[in-house]
Computed example of a mutant assay.
Amino acid sequence: MEVKVIVDKEQNSGSHAGRSVGNVWLRPSRGNKSGEPPLTRARIIQAAVALLDEEGMERLTMRRLAEKLQVGATTLYWHVATKDDVIDLAVDAIFGEAPVPTGHTASPRDDIAALINDWRQAMLRHPWAATVPSRQRPLIGPNFLTWMEFLQSALLRAGLAENRLNPATWALYNHVMGATATQSSLQLSPEETRIGQEYLESQRDCYPTVAAHNYIADTDWDHSFAVGLEFLLDGMATHVDS
């Protein structure tokens, strides 16, 4: 009977508690029950990040995390209400790995580029995190908000109009998340690349530009990301306040 209650609770978390207005950052953390083994939010986060790094988002369940922590699932539920809470905590921990500069430099563009590149490296170290936006939950953890504050203040210092601030922020956000998700998931073998390029060559009459520019074979992710970021920042520079 206890197993069914735990399973039902996890299955329902996405449709009820996980979609409620409140989330883990808007609720106080709960202490240990009397007589329970010590379990802290820090331990839960550390174990969750390790589990996600090792096995990916698909394998994360409250039961699996409880096993890794060597506690009962009911003990884990005392500290975090849903799997979404666990993911929110784990994602925010990633943003805490690389501290945001305490001050801006003389070049807002350099500040933005440095932050975006650090963001990309954090996502590449933990590629499962790039799938988080599909969960339709905003990131409002303290570490992420510190990054966002630095980014948006740098955009305003660069002269971007306030009514363009959020669109610019989302453009940069999507560049990081989209690029890292693609790089992490699109891992073609040399043989797959060769066959794909041969196919494009055979279809050159239909797709001459695609066939001629190594669409499949080009895996210089660093170059593509850097040039894409330049495009975005150059475009934003044309919309600064005069």
Rank of each mutant, 00 (worst) to 15 (best):
K9S: 06
K9P: 01
Q11G: 08
H16T: 10
G22C: 07
N23T: 02
V24G: 03
P28R: 13
P28Y: 06
G31C: 08
N32R: 15
K33V: 07
G35H: 13
P37S: 12
P37R: 15
R41I: 05
R41S: 00
L52V: 05
G56H: 09
E58K: 15
E58Y: 09
R59N: 10
L60V: 11
T61P: 07
R63D: 11
E67M: 15
K68V: 14
Q70R: 15
V71N: 11
G72D: 08
T74M: 15
T75C: 10
Y77F: 15
W78S: 12
T82P: 00
I87S: 01
G96A: 05
P99T: 07
V100A: 05
V100Y: 06
P101H: 06
R109F: 01
D110N: 12
N117V: 08
D118L: 14
R120K: 14
R120A: 10
Q121G: 07
A122H: 03
M123Q: 09
R125Y: 00
R125L: 01
H126E: 00
P127V: 05
P127T: 03
W128N: 05
A130F: 08
P133M: 05
P133A: 00
R137Q: 00
P138R: 15
I140K: 10
F144A: 01
L145M: 12
L145H: 01
T146F: 01
E149M: 04
L156I: 07
L156M: 09
R157H: 05
G159D: 05
G159V: 14
L160S: 02
E162K: 11
N163L: 11
R164S: 02
L165Y: 06
W170V: 09
W170I: 05
A171M: 13
N174H: 04
T180W: 09
A181Y: 09
S185N: 02
Q187K: 15
Q187I: 11
L188T: 08
S189Y: 12
P190K: 14
G196P: 01
G196A: 12
E198V: 13
S202F: 04
S202Q: 13
Q203R: 15
P208E: 15
V210S: 03
A211S: 07
A217T: 05
D218N: 14
D220T: 11
W221I: 07
W221E: 03
D222V: 09
H223S: 08
H223C: 05
A226G: 07
V227R: 11
L232T: 02
L232C: 02
L233K: 11
D234C: 02
D234L: 08
A237L: 12
D241Y: 07
D241E: 12
S242N: 14
